[in-house]
């Protein structure tokens, strides 16, 4: 692995390294669709926060195709579509939640099932 030298820091930071992929994949979900988040509890990496597991939300936007981090953590580069999903406060927190608050969570396609 090449060592980052001081003179290359500015260029490396400016360029960055996107996890977005040019590859196109069919979209399984459309905006406005109700989806339920998988309730999985793997020992290794996932990007599903515990507080949305098993909960129902509405697809707010299609963010495009990215490297799927759960597989990437095992060294595999898999392309997957990412969505921003909206959850109401009452869906997530029950009577203690507020209907006038919502949380938007970026969730990969394989975390979601049609509801």
């Amino acid at each position: 692995m090449p060592v980052l030298k001081a003179e290359n820091v500015a260029a490396a930071l400016r360029e960055g390294s996107t996890a977005r992929l040019a590859q196109d994949l069919p979209a399984r979900f459309v905006c406005g669709q109700r989806v339920r988040v998988a309730n999985i509890n793997p020992q290794d990496h996932t990007r599903i926060p515990r507080y949305v597991r098993g909960h129902v939300g509405v697809v707010d936007s299609d963010q495009g195709v990215f490297i799927f981090p759960d597989a990437h953590a095992r060294g595999e580069k898999v392309a997957q579509r990412l969505y921003s999903v909206r959850f109401t406060g009452t869906e997530l927190w029950g009577p203690q939640g507020k209907a006038d608050t919502a949380v938007y969570v970026d969730l990969f396609e394989s975390y979601l099932a049609p509801q």
Binding site: A19, Y104, D106
Partner: peptide, 15 residues
């Protein structure tokens, strides 16, 4: 104000 909706964006992926 009470009628303002609050939206919280959780940066769980690369956005």
């Amino acid at each position: 104000a009470d009628d303002v909706e609050i939206r919280v964006w959780d940066s769980t992926a690369e956005v």
